[in-house]
Amino acid sequence: MVTVAEVRALARTLPRTTEHLIRDRVKFRVGSIVYVAFSRDESTMGFGYPKEERAALIAAEPDLFLLPPTADLRFNWVCCHLDRLDHGHMTELVSEAWRMVVPRFLARQRLGQ
């Protein structure tokens, strides 16, 4: 199980990340682009993920991943249940979501990609 505190600890290490509390929801963003957000009850985490790949991700692990609310389907976004997420998987998902919103040179410096 992953907590908001664990995600916060990772996000704080990612360059240009800022944390915001918007409508009682914790969100992490780079500039104005949100790359990770939590539900109000902190039971689910939404994160940036390529739209064209999300159906395969959800199909591979339907107990863990779910589609975002209808209003967010137009975005590169997927959600997951925090109580079913392990730390290693969280690290990968958050890092990749961050990579999607920063300049390529910064992602290469941080993640070596």
Rank of each mutant, 00 (worst) to 15 (best):
Arg99Cys: 02
Arg40Ala: 15
Ala9Thr: 14
Ala107Tyr: 06
Thr13Pro: 08
Leu10Asn: 03
Ile33Thr: 15
Cys80Ala: 15
Leu67Asn: 08
Pro15Met: 11
Leu111Ser: 06
Arg25Asn: 11
Gly112Asp: 13
Ile58Glu: 04
Gly31Met: 03
Arg110Lys: 14
Val36Pro: 07
Asp83Thr: 07
Arg54Leu: 01
Pro50Asn: 01
Arg12Ile: 04
Trp98Met: 05
Asp41Met: 05
Gln109Asn: 13
Leu82Pro: 09
Leu67Val: 02
Ile22Asp: 14
Cys80Lys: 10
His81Lys: 15
Leu66Phe: 03
Glu53Val: 00
Val26Thr: 15
Ala56Thr: 05
Asp63Thr: 14
Asp41Gln: 09
Lys27Gln: 15
Ala5Asp: 15
Lys51Met: 03
Ser95His: 12
Pro50Gly: 00
Asn76Cys: 00
Arg104Asn: 12
Ile22Ala: 13
Tyr35His: 04
Val26Phe: 07
Ser32Asp: 14
Ile22Val: 15
Arg104Val: 13
Cys80Trp: 09
Arg40Gly: 09
Glu42Pro: 09
Glu42His: 12
Leu111Met: 12
Asp41Leu: 05
Ser39Ala: 08
Arg16Cys: 11
Asn76Tyr: 00
Ala107Phe: 04
Arg84Glu: 12
Val36Ser: 02
Pro62Arg: 05
Glu96Thr: 01
Ala9Asn: 11
Val36Cys: 09
Leu67Pro: 13
Val7Met: 08
Met45Lys: 03
Leu64Gln: 06
Gln109Arg: 15
Pro103Ala: 06
Gly88Gln: 14
Asp86Tyr: 08
Ala71Trp: 06
Glu53Leu: 08
Glu53His: 04
Met100Asp: 00
Tyr49Ser: 01
Ala107Leu: 05
Glu92Leu: 13
Leu73Tyr: 06
Gln113Glu: 14
Leu73Pro: 04
Gly31Ile: 02
Gly46Val: 02
Phe75Arg: 06
Asp72Asn: 13
Met1Ser: 14
Leu106Ile: 08
Met90Ala: 15
Asp83Cys: 03
Ala37Phe: 11
Arg25Gly: 02
Ala107Pro: 06
Gly112Tyr: 12
Arg54Glu: 02
Glu42Leu: 07
Ala5Met: 14
Ile33His: 13
Ala59Ser: 10
Val101Ile: 04
Leu106Asn: 01
Asp72His: 05
Arg99Phe: 00
Leu14Phe: 10
Lys51His: 04
Leu73Lys: 13
Arg74Ile: 07
Arg54Asn: 02
Arg40His: 10
Arg110Glu: 14
Phe28Leu: 01
Arg84Asn: 12
Arg40Leu: 04
Leu85Trp: 08
Leu66Met: 10
Leu14Asp: 09
Glu19Lys: 06
Ala107Ser: 13
Pro62Lys: 07
Val34Tyr: 03
Ile22Ser: 14
Leu64Asp: 05
Pro69Leu: 02
Pro62Val: 04
Ala60Asp: 06
Leu14Thr: 10
Arg74Trp: 04
Leu82Asn: 06
Val101Gly: 01
Asp72Cys: 01
Asp83Ser: 13
Arg12Trp: 11
Thr91Val: 14
Pro103Thr: 01
Gln109Asp: 14
